[in-house]
C-alpha cells in the first residue's frame, strides 16, 4: 500500500497511548489477557496507567520529556 491512509488500525499518539481500532486481545507482562471492550481502545505506553494495559490519561501528569 502506498500513500497516506486516513483510517489506520493503529495510531501512536505523540506523548500518549496507542489507539487500537477493532476487537483485540492483549496479553500483559504477567501473561494476563485483556479483551478490548470498545470500538477503539487506548493502550498505555507510558507505563504509569493505573488501569493497565489501558490508558487512563496519567501520561499527562509526567514531564513531557519522559512521555512516550
Amino acid at each position: 500500500m502506498s500513500g497516506h491512509d486516513d483510517h489506520p488500525d493503529v495510531i501512536l499518539c505523540a506523548g500518549g497511548p496507542m489507539l487500537l481500532r477493532g476487537d483485540h486481545v492483549i496479553e500483559d507482562a504477567d501473561g494476563t489477557q485483556h479483551r478490548t471492550v470498545r470500538p477503539i481502545s487506548a493502550v498505555c505506553r507510558c507505563g504509569k496507567s493505573a488501569s493497565q494495559p489501558w490508558c487512563d490519561g496519567t501520561h499527562k501528569l509526567i514531564p513531557k520529556q519522559r512521555r512516550p
Binding site: P17, L19, R38, I40, C55, D56, G57
Partner: peptide, 10 residues
C-alpha cells in the same frame, strides 16, 4: 476513565 482516555485523543 478509560473511555475518555480514548475520546480525548479522538
Amino acid at each position: 476513565v478509560e473511555a475518555d482516555a480514548v475520546h480525548e485523543q479522538l
